[in-house]
Amino acid sequence: DAEELIELVERALKEGREIILLGVRITSEEAGKWFIEWIRRFL
């Protein structure tokens, strides 16, 4: 579910982890915020 995915992304970014989803590397909080917004819009 989308909320679970958002929580995972937020937690990983807070822990300083690198996330790779759909071939996109997300390493900064700014990118994470963009990704979370995208999830909310399309899922």
Score class of each variant (00 low, 15 high):
Arg11Gln: 12
Glu3Met: 12
Glu37His: 05
Glu30Cys: 15
Trp38Arg: 03
Leu5Val: 04
Ile39Leu: 14
Arg25Gln: 12
Arg25Leu: 13
Glu7Lys: 14
Ala12Gln: 02
Glu10Tyr: 14
Glu37Ile: 11
Trp34Leu: 13
Val9Gly: 00
Leu5His: 00
Glu15Lys: 03
Ile20Gln: 04
Leu22His: 03
Lys14Ile: 10
Phe35Lys: 02
Val9Pro: 00
Leu21Gly: 01
Ile39Val: 12
Trp34Cys: 07
Gly23Asp: 05
Arg25Ile: 10
Val9Phe: 04
Phe35Leu: 09
Glu10Thr: 11
Glu7Cys: 12
Gly16Met: 09
Ser28Phe: 07
Glu29Cys: 04
Glu37Ala: 09
Glu7Asp: 11
Arg11Pro: 02
Arg17Asp: 02
Phe35Thr: 02
Glu37Trp: 08
Asp1Arg: 15
Ile20Arg: 02
Gly23Asn: 06
Leu21Ala: 06
Val9Gln: 00
Gly32Trp: 08
Ile39Asn: 01
Ile19His: 00
Ile36Ser: 02
Ile36Arg: 03
Asp1His: 15
Lys33Tyr: 11
Ile6Trp: 10
Gly32Asn: 04
Leu43Met: 13
Leu13Tyr: 06
Glu18Pro: 09
Leu21Asn: 00
Thr27Val: 12
Ala31Gly: 11
Val9Arg: 00
Leu13Ile: 13
Glu3Asn: 14
Val9Tyr: 01
Glu37Met: 10
Ile6Ala: 04
Ile39Thr: 01
Ile20Pro: 00
Gly23His: 09
Ala12His: 04
Ala12Leu: 07
Ser28Glu: 04
Ile19Ala: 04
Asp1Val: 13
Val24Ala: 03
Leu13Lys: 00
Asp1Met: 15
Glu15Cys: 15
Ser28Gly: 10
Ile39Met: 06
Ile39Arg: 00
Gly16Asp: 02
Ile26Arg: 03
Ser28Leu: 04
Arg40Val: 09
Ile19Asp: 00
Thr27Cys: 15
Trp34Gly: 06
Thr27Gln: 08
Arg17Gln: 08
Glu7Thr: 12
Leu22Ile: 08
Val24Gln: 03
Glu30His: 10
Arg11Gly: 06
Ile39His: 01
Leu21Tyr: 03
Glu37Leu: 10
Ile39Pro: 01
Phe42Thr: 09
Trp34Val: 10
Ser28Met: 03
Glu7Ala: 14
Leu8Val: 04
Trp34Phe: 07
Glu29Pro: 14
Leu8Ser: 02
Ile20His: 05
Ala31Asn: 10
Leu22Gly: 03
Arg11Val: 08
Gly23Phe: 09
Ala12Thr: 04
Gly16Val: 04
Asp1Ser: 15
Arg17Thr: 09
Leu21Glu: 01
Gly32Ser: 05
Val9Asn: 00
Leu43Asp: 02
Gly16Ser: 05
Ala2Tyr: 15
Lys33Glu: 07
Trp34Tyr: 10
Ala12Pro: 03
Lys33Pro: 03
Arg17Ile: 08
Lys14Gln: 11
Arg25Ser: 13
Arg41Lys: 14
Phe42Glu: 05
Arg17Val: 11
Gly32Leu: 10
Glu7Val: 10
Gly16Arg: 06
Trp38Met: 06
Gly32Gln: 05
Lys33Arg: 14
Thr27Phe: 14
Ala31Pro: 04
Arg17Ser: 06
Glu3Ser: 11
Val24Thr: 03
Val9Asp: 00
Gly23Pro: 04
Leu5Ile: 08
Ile36Asp: 02
Ile26Asn: 03
Glu18Ser: 07
Glu4Trp: 14
Ile6Met: 07
Lys33Gln: 10
Ala12Tyr: 04
Phe35Gly: 00
Ile20Val: 10
Leu5Lys: 00
Ile6His: 03
Ser28Asn: 14
Arg41Cys: 15
Val24Phe: 15
Lys14Phe: 08
Arg25Glu: 10
Leu8Pro: 00
Lys14Ser: 12
Leu43Pro: 02
Val9Ser: 00
Ala31Ser: 14
Glu10Asp: 05
Glu29Phe: 11
Leu21His: 02
Ala12Arg: 01
Ala2Pro: 13
Thr27Leu: 11
Thr27Arg: 05
Lys33Asp: 05
Glu30Arg: 12
Glu29Ala: 12
Glu29Gly: 10
Glu3Arg: 14
Lys14Leu: 14
Lys33Trp: 10
Glu7Phe: 09
Ala12Glu: 03
Leu21Thr: 01
Leu22Cys: 15
Glu7His: 10
Lys33Ile: 07
Glu4Asp: 09
Leu21Val: 14
Arg17Met: 11
Glu29Trp: 14
Arg11Tyr: 06
Arg17Trp: 11
Leu22Ala: 03
Asp1Ala: 14
Glu4Ile: 14
Leu21Gln: 01
Leu21Phe: 05
Glu15Asn: 06
Arg41Asp: 08
Trp38Gln: 05
Gly23Gln: 08
Phe42Trp: 15
Gly32Val: 07
Ile19Arg: 00
Phe35Tyr: 04
Glu18Trp: 08
Ala12Ser: 06
Glu7Gln: 13
Glu10Arg: 10
Arg11His: 09
Leu8Lys: 05
Glu18Asn: 08
Glu10His: 12
Ala2His: 09
Glu18Lys: 06
Ala31Phe: 08
Ala12Asn: 03
Glu7Ser: 14
Ala2Lys: 08
Ile39Cys: 08
Glu3Ile: 13
Leu13Val: 12
Ser28Val: 04
Ile19Leu: 06
Leu13Phe: 04
Val24Lys: 02
Val24Asp: 01
Trp38Ser: 02
Phe35Asn: 00
Ile19Tyr: 02
Leu5Gln: 01
Thr27Ala: 14
Glu4Cys: 12
Ile26Leu: 04
Lys14Asn: 06
Glu30Gln: 13
Lys33Leu: 11
Phe42Ile: 10
Ser28His: 06
Ala2Ile: 15
Gly32Thr: 05
Gly16Trp: 08
Glu37Lys: 08
Val9Thr: 01
Ile20Thr: 14
Ile19Lys: 01
Trp38Lys: 03
Arg40Lys: 12
Arg40Pro: 03
Ala2Thr: 09
Glu18Ile: 10
Phe35Trp: 04
Ile6Val: 07
Ser28Pro: 03
Arg41Asn: 14
Ser28Ala: 05
Phe35His: 01
Gly23Arg: 05
Trp34Pro: 01
Glu18Ala: 08
Leu8Tyr: 07
Trp38His: 03
Ala31Trp: 11
Glu15Ile: 07
Ile6Gln: 03
Glu7Pro: 02
Leu22Lys: 02
Phe35Arg: 01
Gly32Pro: 04
Leu43Gln: 08
Leu13Asn: 01
Ile39Trp: 03
Val9Ile: 09
Ile6Pro: 01
Ile20Ser: 08
Thr27Lys: 11
Leu21Lys: 00
Gly16Cys: 11
Trp34Ile: 11
Ile36His: 02
Ser28Arg: 04
Leu8Trp: 10
Gly16Lys: 09
Arg25Asp: 04
Glu18Leu: 07
Leu13His: 01
Glu30Asp: 12
Arg17Glu: 05
Thr27His: 13
Ser28Asp: 13
Trp34Asn: 12
Leu43Arg: 02
Leu13Ala: 02
Glu15Phe: 07
Leu8Gln: 09
Asp1Gln: 14
Leu43Glu: 05
Ile20Asn: 04
Glu4Phe: 15
Ala12Phe: 04
Ile19Thr: 00
Arg17Gly: 06
Ile6Arg: 05
Trp38Pro: 00
Thr27Asn: 15
Phe35Val: 11
Glu37Ser: 06
Gly23Val: 11
Glu30Ser: 09
Glu30Phe: 08
Leu43Lys: 03
Arg40Phe: 09
Gly16Ile: 09
Lys14Ala: 13
Glu29Arg: 10
Arg40Ser: 08
Phe35Ser: 01
Glu3Trp: 14
Glu15His: 08
Glu15Ala: 08
Phe42Gly: 07
Ile6Asp: 01
Phe42Asn: 10
Gly32Cys: 05
Glu10Gly: 05
Val9Ala: 04
Glu29Lys: 11
Glu10Ser: 06
Lys14Val: 06
Trp34Arg: 15
Asp1Trp: 15
Ile39Asp: 01
Arg41Leu: 14
Arg11Phe: 07
Glu10Leu: 13
Ile26Ala: 03
Ala12Met: 05
Leu21Ser: 00
Ile26Trp: 04
Lys33Ala: 11
Leu5Pro: 00
Ala2Met: 14
Gly32Ile: 11
Glu15Leu: 07
Leu5Glu: 00
Ile6Asn: 02
Ala2Arg: 09
Gly32Tyr: 08
Asp1Ile: 15
Gly23Lys: 05
Ile20Phe: 05
Glu18Met: 07
Leu22Val: 04
Leu43His: 07
Ala12Asp: 00
Arg41Trp: 13
Ala2Gly: 06
Ile39Gly: 01
Ile36Trp: 06
Ala31Thr: 15
Arg40Gly: 04
Ala31Arg: 11
Thr27Tyr: 11
Gly23Thr: 07
Glu30Leu: 11
Glu15Pro: 02
Ile20Leu: 05
Glu3Pro: 06
Leu43Ser: 06
Arg11Ala: 10
Ile19Ser: 00
Glu4Asn: 12
Arg40Met: 13
Leu21Pro: 00
Ile36Pro: 01
Leu43Gly: 04
Leu22Pro: 00
Leu5Arg: 00
Leu22Arg: 03
Leu13Thr: 04
Glu37Tyr: 09
Ile20Tyr: 07
Arg40Leu: 12
Phe42His: 13
Leu22Ser: 02
Asp1Gly: 13
Glu30Trp: 08
Lys14Arg: 13
Glu10Asn: 13
Ala12Val: 05
Ala12Ile: 06
Leu21Met: 04
Leu8Glu: 07
Ala2Val: 13
Ala31Leu: 12
Arg11Met: 12
Ala31Glu: 15
Gly16Thr: 03
Leu13Arg: 02
Leu13Met: 11
